[in-house]
């Protein structure tokens, strides 16, 4: 009886919360097990005749297709580039695969392609779309347009960037305001009738990561883009995989006033809301001011801030955790408890 309610896939299986984790670790992982997949990284590192390649894939569905600050085309390019650069590689080539619902206006499709082209130009570094595919499905079998993108890049020599390199005393830095993407999309759907000028933060972060690396030298330990499930999810995951505790200072987390406003209206927690252009950086304390300066100079990092610190674990029997230090100096442990964030009145 009890399982009765659990045997369909719910929206919350795709929101980056606990259910997403379970879908991956209990259903997908065991079915397809191998030594690379098991690491569950955003992009896989595969040996490739002497060089090391990073490989990633991601699917994009968003409604509406166009929103302030971006569109599905920009989103798919940025998402894939950002996944690649977190492993410390230089993105080289992307694939594009479209699933189109019958009846989509051709001009809409052209606009998406135009945006893909512009985003590639914005990203620079000679990143190219090198292959693709198109499928059209019957009306009602897809919502206008879905895009899948895969990407490949090459790991350059240099210090390894990986969650396993996170060290006690590292500073935790983010490149700007959180929750803008999720709240922008919610706002665009106009279901709740807010008027606010919130743009998605959707951006290709390869240049930012390059600037960070140049400024950091060997002091850069790990990078991760904070997308679905928000900043909280990334921190909790990295705390788990690095087996370190993190302290995060609530009053240091940058958030735009209007984004916070909509969150307050609806009773949502911005820490758990999606971003599409936010990189969380773990770096040695002594380099972090230099890194912060470099980030602030980059066009995608104006509001960068140091938001927390890595603490070691004293009691090895306890799970690593992320502690939020509130404005009152009290502590609370962040938990990956959220299913989809639903607006509430209570």
């Amino acid at each position: 009886m009890k399982d009765n309610k659990n045997n369909s896939i719910l929206l919350s299986h795709g929101d980056g919360g606990v259910k997403t984790g379970r879908l991956i670790s209990e259903i997908i992982g065991p079915a397809l097990k191998n030594n690379i997949l098991d690491r569950l990284e955003d992009s896989a590192i595969i040996p490739c005749r002497g060089a090391k390649a990073a490989f990633t894939t991601d699917s994009f569905v968003v409604s509406p297709l166009f929103f302030p600050g971006g569109d599905i085309g920009k989103l798919c390019v940025c998402g894939t580039i950002n996944d690649l650069v977190t492993s410390g590689c230089r993105p080289a080539a992307l694939s594009l695969s479209f699933i189109i619902e019958e009846g989509l206006d051709i001009n809409v499709f052209k606009k998406v392609l135009e945006s893909i082209k512009n985003t590639l130009e914005e990203a620079g570094e000679g990143i190219k779309i090198v292959t693709g595919d198109t499928k059209v499905v019957e009306k009602g079998n897809a919502d206008k347009l879905f895009i899948n993108t895969s990407g490949i890049g090459f790991i350059e020599d240099g210090p390894g960037i990986s969650p396993s390199n996170i060290k006690e005393g590292d500073n935790i830095i983010i490149n700007g305001n959180i929750a803008d993407h999720g709240i922008c999309i919610l706002n665009c759907r106009q279901e709740f009738g807010f008027k606010a000028d919130i743009k998605s933060d959707c951006a290709p972060l390869n240049s930012l990561v390059k600037d960070i690396k140049d400024a950091a030298g060997s002091g850069l330990h790990a990078l991760r883009d904070a997308t679905r499930g928000g900043l909280a999810r990334v921190l909790i995951e990295l705390s788990g995989s690095s087996k370190m505790n993190f302290d995060i200072y609530q009053d240091k987390i940058p958030i735009q006033r209007q984004t916070r406003g909509i969150c307050e209206f609806l009773g949502m927690d911005p820490l758990y809301i999606a971003n599409e252009g936010k990189m969380v950086v773990f770096a040695e304390e002594k380099n972090s001011i230099r890194i912060l300066d470099a980030m602030k100079k980059n066009r995608y990092g104006k509001h960068s801030a140091i938001i927390g610190r890595v603490k070691g674990i004293k009691d090895k029997n306890r799970n690593a955790s992320v502690t939020l230090i509130t404005e009152l100096g009290t502590k609370r442990v962040l938990d990956l408890h959220y299913s989809e964030q639903l607006p509430r009145i209570c």
Partner: peptide, 28 residues
């Protein structure tokens, strides 16, 4: 038991007002 937030009234049209809170406008 009831989430409620403060806002300032910007415009009134009969039983509907446009209010603003944290820079967000909304008709209530």
């Amino acid at each position: 038991m009831c989430l409620a937030i403060p806002a300032v009234v910007k415009k009134i049209n009969r039983n509907i007002a446009e209010i603003e809170s944290l820079g967000v406008l909304k008709k209530i």
